[in-house]
Amino acid sequence: MTDQPYDPYQQPQQQGWPGQQPHPAQQPHQGYDGYEGYDDPYAAQQYTQQWKGQTWEAQAQPQGPTPMSTAETAYLQAQAPHPQAAHPQAAQPAAQQWQQPQAFAPAAVAGEAPDPGYGPATLAGNSRVTDAQRARLEGRSPIIEPGMQPAALTALLGLLLAGAAAIGSYALLVPLVVLQAVTAAGWFRLNGMWPARQGIALAFLGALAADAALLAAGRENGPAAILGTLGVWVLLSLVLQLRSHADPDERMYGLMASVASAALAIVAAGYLAALADAATVGAVAVAVAVLARALPLPTPASVVVSLLAAAGAGIAAGSMTDFGAKGALLGAGAAVCALIGHRVASYDYPSRFVHFTAGVALPLTVAAPVVYVLGRALG
């Protein structure tokens, strides 16, 4: 190795990746002034780092025909036009591809029975058949009742309402607010609208407004407080739906669901407007009626047993209050409304969430107006 004099203008050697060949633009040359350099002053920086990956131009180049699978050719047969219309020259080889899927016919063509769990094979796909539609096609009922666990929760909430009503209005307010919140959420989910935070919040705020109006106006002015709050909340629901940018059908459906949810949550305040003894008897009767309805009996027998049990519970609860034997009528009337709410929560194959919201709350909520009316009439 020989010593060379130091040259301050000597260009640094370019460092590249291992095994990398220098780009032609990087080849040094003898300049006009006797020094080595580059034609382009930016060429050294431009080609300092070389990518070995596939570039866009390399990807864009055609690599020859790619063999197609049988499923792809079957799909293209239904989607693409006949190859003779678009490319007459390529009609002969393409025609053979179109005929290949015919060899893969489904087993049903050969006489074998298809799997009953699946529909016929199609290229576009089949729309999902809901459980309720399948039940109707098979001649079964699309009704699924909530069962014993939601009935037990309804009974627990009913007993809490009965005990709190015997204590006072402010004590009754705690389980009542829980009932109103579960009613608002369950009704929207029962109608297939989820999540519906604005509608649930609006209905629940209407229930709280009705409770506040009842506490301020007193039980003697209960109907005015409930109906006034209901009218205001119907107007609010209408204004909110008019501001929506959804389709007219969707807005109408949302309006009906919002109004119904708010009405049910507000009407549940009837326990707060009713006489304390009437609220106690009615809540106990609903609790017993729902438990009896959940027993594993035929539907007609279950309904009869439920009504008789509610009447008996009304007599027992009335004996501890001023109603006495008249509690049987109050209990039976509350039980009829509770069974209606129970039936509504069972309609059209509801989900488990519906059973534990609407299935728990609707029997007590629907019975609230009857508890108020019969309580005033019999008390």
Rank of each mutant, 00 (worst) to 15 (best):
H245F: 02
G254W: 01
S237Y: 01
D211W: 05
A217F: 08
I226Q: 04
A212M: 15
H245Q: 13
G222R: 03
L214F: 14
G254P: 01
A209I: 04
R219D: 13
A210K: 02
L227I: 11
L227T: 11
G228T: 11
D249F: 10
L238N: 10
A209H: 07
G206S: 01
G222K: 02
L242N: 10
A207C: 04
G206R: 07
L255S: 06
G218V: 00
W233N: 06
I226L: 14
G231V: 04
A209V: 12
A217H: 12
D249N: 15
W233C: 07
S237R: 00
A207S: 07
L208V: 05
L255Q: 10
A217Y: 05
A210N: 09
Q241L: 10
P223S: 09
L227V: 14
A224C: 13
G206E: 01
L205W: 08
L238M: 14
R243E: 13
L238S: 14
W233P: 11
L242E: 12
Q241G: 07
G218E: 04
A210R: 03
P248N: 10
E220Q: 15
T229V: 15
D211G: 07
L240Q: 09
V239K: 03
V232G: 15
A207Y: 02
L208A: 06
D249L: 13
R243V: 04
A209S: 13
A209D: 09
V234H: 05
